[in-house]
Amino acid sequence: MHRFKTLIIEDEPAIRKELEWMVTQKEELALTAVADSVAKALDLLAQTTPDLVLMDIQLEDGTAFDILHHHPSPAFRIIFITAYDHYAIRAIRYGALDYLLKPIDQQDFNGAIERLKKQEVAGLPGRLDIARQMAIPEKAVDMNAQICIAATDCLQMIRLADVMHLSGEGAYTKIFLQQGKRITASKPLKYYEELLPGENFIRPHQSYIVNRQYIDKYLKSGILVMRDQTEIPVATRRKEFIINCLTTLK
């Protein structure tokens, strides 16, 4: 059985110890080194060749992205470790990368390792680039930027500007793009509501999210008509919100 040589980068002693214990409990993982700073992590990465890096995002002397700046095309897989931070999580989700929230849950950790076994390193640099671009809180949303969608059979790269609307179907989401294209994503609609920029995407109904730029008109019967003539229902309790959004639409 292949064992993933594992490097832990974490500056909180309690979390670090917990990760060490979790790694040693998995037959498919082999703990090779531990770092508690950006400087030490860079040192270890220069000396070793891990298959997997459990990487804390916020370290005392920098961030995970400082480390990845020196490894723009990593041959190792990555699972980010983070306390909940809106911008960090959004950045990771944009790149469809895996992460664990502190405190680490054993079941979440096991799930991440199972996903790891199915994951390909190919395409990782591009996904990390997306995460880097989105990791800066002050950065204005670039609708020409790409987003990585975890589709049912692949990782699909699409432009934010090409997303017209999304439709939720239980644990899956259908994403409708320009020119009649569509993708079925293996994430629920709530995931995309948290991910997509609220200034550009609004949720008129529990089953739909729409790109404001593709709205053609609002019918008083409670229907949004998109430019491609798709009709999106507006929930009664959302009507005032939607009308307000449209009257301030620029």
Rank of each mutant, 00 (worst) to 15 (best):
L224C: 13
V225T: 06
R212Y: 11
Y218W: 14
T173Y: 00
L196M: 10
V210F: 06
Q178L: 15
K187M: 01
Q179M: 02
K217C: 01
R182W: 08
R212Q: 08
K217I: 03
Q179R: 05
K220L: 06
N200D: 11
K174V: 12
V210W: 07
L177H: 03
K174T: 09
K220Q: 06
R182K: 12
T230I: 07
L177I: 10
V225W: 09
G222V: 02
Q178M: 07
L177Q: 11
I223H: 15
I223R: 15
I223K: 07
I223Q: 07
G198P: 14
T173P: 00
S186R: 15
E231K: 10
T173Q: 00
Q213C: 07
I209E: 09
L177G: 15
L196R: 12
Q179C: 00
V225K: 07
F201E: 05
Q213P: 00
F176E: 04
I223M: 13
D216V: 01
K187W: 00
T184L: 09
Q179D: 12
T173N: 00
Q229K: 07
K187L: 07
Q213M: 15
K217G: 05
L189A: 08
H205D: 12
I202S: 13
K181S: 04
E194C: 08
L177T: 08
D216T: 09
R203V: 00
D228L: 01
E193H: 13
Q213R: 06
T184S: 02
V210Q: 10
P188H: 11
S207T: 05
E231G: 04
S207P: 04
P197D: 15
I209Q: 02
G198K: 06
R212N: 07
T173R: 00
V210A: 13
Y191V: 11
D228V: 09
G222S: 14
F201D: 03
I175N: 00
A171L: 10
G222F: 10
L195P: 02
R182H: 14
I202G: 07
T230A: 15
R182G: 03
R212K: 14
P197M: 11
I223G: 05
L196P: 06
R203C: 08
S186T: 13
R227E: 07
S221G: 09
L219W: 07
N200F: 11
L219A: 13
P188C: 09
Q178I: 04
R203Y: 01
Q179A: 08
Y214M: 01
A171T: 11
K181N: 11
T230D: 01
R182Q: 15
G180I: 03
K181P: 00
Y214V: 06
F176Q: 03
T173M: 13
V210I: 14
G198D: 04
A171N: 10
K174G: 00
T230E: 03
I215L: 10
L189K: 15
G180S: 08
T184Q: 04
K217L: 14
Q213D: 13
V225D: 01
D228I: 13
F176C: 04
T230P: 07
L224W: 06
S221Q: 07
E199Y: 10
Y218R: 09
E194P: 06
